[in-house]
């Protein structure tokens, strides 16, 4: 279970999260929706442990463990995974080298043996196939020359490989066409199970047609201001975020 209590966080001295509370049990999928600037991406980065984000108050525990005390790599080993909104391009680092290094680091950290090269290759190929990621794409440097959709599918591939307990997806639907959205959603849905918790961070309701959440939270000015079931997302789609601080276009 993920428990976020009274979370306050700031970037460069600017207060962004101002007392955020969420309880996300294992086996559930929660969506966090909110206008631009409400703190959605800050929450994602704080969960993953980005250094420039300073937590000034509150706590975050995952299955009882205080993740704020952990480095980003320790969080990954503990099962926290962030699918980035904008995955970075890293020229010179081969995608397969990266995937293998990450998978083995996580496995060793969890007390499992490293995978042999053939086993690793088999595993990656099988999962890449399901996400329609071509072998050619895997031969390229990490995220270099990937289209927006390819980057997002590659994030989901990493999620499938690392088998996290807590999946945080930051604006995963942004920049995706309908086909890519379907592929990504199928990948995410296939990972839904009673042991795994998922947090979908999104501006638009569209993604939630494909990945149906158990609960929807509205984030506004650094706090959860409303929670409800999936119908809340539809309501937001209708009315917009005007009442939550976003100016009408």
């Amino acid at each position: 279970m993920l428990e976020i209590k009274n979370l306050h966080a700031e970037v460069d001295g600017e207060k962004i999260l101002k007392g955020l509370n969420i309880t996300l049990p294992r086996g559930e999928v929660h969506a966090i929706m909110g206008p631009n600037g409400s703190g959605k991406s800050t929450l994602a980065n704080v969960l993953a442990g980005k250094e420039d984000y300073e937590v000034t108050k509150g706590s975050i525990t995952w299955n009882g463990a205080d993740i704020l005390k952990m480095s980003p790599e320790e969080r990954a080993i503990a099962g926290v995974f962030l699918a980035f909104q904008y995955p970075v391009e890293i020229p010179g680092v081969a995608t397969m080298t990266f995937l293998r290094t990450a998978l083995n680091a996580v496995r060793v950290g969890r007390g499992e043996p490293e995978l042999t090269t053939p086993d690793f290759m088999r595993l990656v190929r099988a999962k890449a196939d399901g996400l329609q990621i071509s072998p050619d794409m895997l031969k390229r440097p990490l995220n270099v020359g990937f289209s927006g959709g390819e980057k997002k599918r590659h994030e989901i591939l990493q999620m499938e490989l690392l088998e996290p307990g807590l999946c945080v997806l930051d604006e995963t639907d942004s920049g995706l066409d309908i086909d890519a959205l379907r592929i990504v959603s199928e990948g995410v849905n296939s990972l839904r199970n009673p042991e795994r918790a998922m947090l979908l961070i999104t501006h638009y309701q569209r993604l939630l047609n494909y990945i149906v959440p158990d609960q929807v939270h509205v984030l506004s000015d650094g706090k959860i201001v409303r929670s409800g079931d999936k119908s809340l997302a539809l309501e937001l789609e209708e009315s917009g975020y005007a009442e939550y601080g976003e100016k009408a276009a």
Partner: peptide, 12 residues
């Protein structure tokens, strides 16, 4: 780039 890799379990 460092943060991206570390968030995947790779040590600093």
């Amino acid at each position: 780039s460092m943060f991206y890799m570390r968030s995947r379990g790779i040590s600093e």
